[in-house]
Amino acid sequence: MKKSLKQLVLLATSTLLLTGCSLFSSEEDVVTMSELPAFEATYQPKIAWQQSIGNGVDKYYSQLQPTADDEAVYVASRDGKVKAFSVKGGKLLWSNDFSDHESNKLNRSARFSGGIHLAVDTLYIGTENAQVLAIDKSNGELIWLVKVSGEVIASPVYSNGLVVVHTSRGELIALDSENGEQEWTLNNKQPNLTLRGSATPSISQGGIIYGRADGFVAAALLESGQPLWQLPVARPYGATELDRIVDADMKPVIRNGIIYVLAYNGNLVAIDLLKGQQLWERKYSGYSDIALSGSSLYLTDYRGYLYAVDRTSGEEIWANKQLAYRNVTGVTVANEYIVVGDGEGYLHWVDRDTGEFVAQQELDSDGIYMQPFEARQYLYLQTRSGDLVAIEKPSINK
């Protein structure tokens, strides 16, 4: 009974955060999605090509996102299809279906969920079935598949021969990139109630930095998993477990030895990488990835408000609140603009300097759930219904 109740609350929490709807029936507790912003467009985005990936992610929570190099873009569907398309023209280069792999016989499907990570000549991807796969990027053939101790919702990361995954149980697990053998595990205690998600780690200067469900950002040695430091960026408060959710679920951004991280019911914080000391903090609450370009950080909060913040001081540059409760994604930089998707399937283009809208595209009526992946020439966007869209980037680069 206790387990069932917990699952129900977790589901309700995810519904609240992903749809912007209230858990309560009283009128004052219900939030309303903002109308689509109306403005005079000053930029016309161009779609270079579009291809189908598979059945999409339906209504499931997912962190699936494409990755790319100069020759190809690689993408996966939740049900187990992995495909590579040529950057020029979107021609299908290869396709492989892992849904029938013997390891999935007792599962509903492959349930890919952690976005693809590309390292040298190999693709790494995680699943809700607690698996990690290594796939040859040249032909889509499976190199190895291993079982781990929890769902891999976040994208794996690679450095110096190690593939590191952050599981839904809060563990960091390092695998040998050649054969998938486990090298070390770092356990972290999980709160009773968390958001449906895990933070993708970042690797820098021999350390791995990651956000935790207890509101801490922590660092460990990549080689051994030995903890280095931990720092709270959100502290639980409130009368209920729901009030006390403090996940730091976004991928830490690192520039010049400084870490930038955002937490739900917490803060936007700048941290010295080597010392683990806080440099500044500002009161923002969110769970989506932030972007850094030039001297500015760009982020969306849990309400869908969009902000630009000075990365050296944390001072707010501008705020745009016109996308409130539209289930806005994290932010991607596209040269002089930034872009965010929303739950109704629109991609919004915003001037980096002013926060004003310059364009919008309706791409998928089923919705956009993750921000586009930025490559040299295109933004690659994966939609909820299973389309891969290559969008040309503006030519000017600030």
Rank of each mutant, 00 (worst) to 15 (best):
V217P: 08
V217Y: 02
A218R: 07
A218H: 11
A220E: 04
A220C: 08
L221I: 04
S224M: 03
S224D: 06
P227T: 07
P227S: 09
L228W: 06
Q230R: 12
L231M: 10
R235Q: 12
E241T: 12
L242K: 11
D243Y: 03
I245Y: 01
D247R: 08
D247E: 05
D249Q: 15
D249V: 05
M250Q: 15
M250I: 05
M250H: 04
R255L: 11
R255V: 11
G257I: 05
G257W: 00
L262C: 07
L262Y: 02
L262N: 09
G276F: 08
L279R: 10
W280V: 06
W280C: 02
K283W: 08
S285L: 06
S288H: 14
D289L: 05
D289Y: 03
S295F: 07
S295L: 07
L299V: 01
L299I: 03
D301Y: 02
Y305F: 14
L306E: 00
V309S: 08
V309F: 02
G314Q: 10
G314I: 00
G314F: 13
E315G: 12
E316I: 00
W318N: 01
W318D: 06
A319H: 03
A319M: 13
N320P: 08
Q322D: 14
L323N: 06
A324Q: 14
Y325Q: 10
Y325E: 14
R326H: 12
T329S: 15
A334Y: 03
N335T: 12
Y337S: 04
Y337G: 01
Y337D: 06
V339D: 08
V339S: 11
V339Y: 03
V340Y: 02
V340H: 05
G341L: 02
D342M: 03
E344Y: 11
V350Y: 00
V350S: 04
